[in-house]
């Protein structure tokens, strides 16, 4: 079921605004370049040998340019395996977070259940705490939760990807509930009421009536959540002791030595690691903006 809630009016062609846009373009181009310059400089550095940039500085003419660091970064850090770990964490993490958060948001904003606002506050406030606060109690807790061997080779929740996925979901729920609840309030009540008159149960109201309207918002949140879960590093670090289970962000740290770090190699690795998130953004840009459009509109 697709409801055409395209927020934009048909393009109107009112003339005068078209002219005199030169200044705006100049400004936007300048800002864009300023935003892009550091990234381009990082890519440039990743193409040059360390000895050269250490000697002549990062802002100097190239003497050697090559992609050698990219190959080295990929091979030395064992990136492919870590990349898989990150997907195992991020993909179910994003999907489950969106599913659970959308239902809570639905219940809070559409069902008029008692204590809905309080529930919303509990979730939103939980999102304000920095991750570091939760580490120690969770560590103790996870060490006490036994798991069968087929689920975790450590026999506890600690040192298993389950722990990381669970924490990722719990930690991101707050933000998603907050945004989705705000969004759902803006949806037309009439459709829901019509469905109720037709005898639709709670699940049908959620799954068949509300969720389809939220798809753009879900795609948008999905992009953000993927970026965050994929880039996150702390949960993996503190709840996994087996190095082979760590997420891809830790592969980057494998490029750092005890003392010596070749920053240009690290830059090459960073570009490789960032590629999936950039790709996801570019692919979902349409959904993203469309989704936020709906989410942000006022009810």
């Amino acid at each position: 079921m697709t409801v055409s809630t395209a927020p934009r009016p048909a393009p109107t062609r009112t003339g005068p605004a078209r002219h005199g846009r030169f200044g705006v373009h100049l400004f936007l181009t300048a800002v864009s370049l300023a935003f892009l310059a550091p990234l381009l400089l990082a890519v440039y550095a990743s193409l040059r040998p360390y000895e050269e940039t250490a000697r002549y500085g990062y802002f100097s003419l190239p003497r050697h340019l090559s992609f050698a660091y990219y190959r080295q970064a990929f091979v030395d850090s064992g990136m492919s395996r870590y990349f898989l770990n990150s997907l195992v964490i991020a993909v179910p993490g994003v999907l489950l977070t969106l599913f659970l958060a959308s239902f809570v948001a639905f219940a809070v904003s559409r069902l008029r259940i008692r204590g809905g606002t309080a529930l919303l506050m509990v979730f939103t406030a939980g999102n304000l705490l920095p991750q570091q606060v939760l580490v120690t109690p969770l560590y103790v807790l996870f060490n006490k939760v036994p798991l069968p061997y087929w689920m975790s080779d450590s026999m506890t929740l600690y040192d298993s990807l389950w722990a990381v996925i669970a924490v990722q979901i719990a930690f991101q729920l707050g933000f998603c509930v907050f945004v989705l609840a705000n969004f759902m309030r803006t949806l037309p009540r009439e459709i829901l009421e019509a469905a109720i008159v037709d005898g639709a149960g709670v699940w049908a109201q959620y799954r068949r009536v509300t969720l389809p309207l939220c798809r753009p918002a879900l795609a948008a949140l999905g992009t953000l959540q993927f970026t965050w879960m994929y880039n996150d590093f702390l949960w993996g670090l503190v709840f996994l002791s087996d190095g082979d289970k760590l997420p891809v962000t830790s592969a980057l740290n494998n490029l750092r030595g005890q003392f010596f770090t070749d920053y240009n190699l690290l830059a090459a690795g960073s570009v490789l690691v960032a590629l999936p998130t950039v790709l996801v953004f570019l692919l979902l840009q349409r959904h993203f903006i469309a989704g936020l459009t709906l989410g942000a509109s006022k009810g």
Partner: peptide
């Protein structure tokens, strides 16, 4: 138009990806 089409493929792809990637990798632990 694009949203209608690729959203579905996107979701399906994501779900498939989750299943395909998560299960074997999680199970190889044993």
């Amino acid at each position: 138009a694009g949203r209608r089409m690729s959203r579905r493929t996107l979701l399906r792809g994501a779900a498939l990806g989750a299943g395909a990637v998560a299960l074997p990798a999680l199970l190889t632990a044993c």
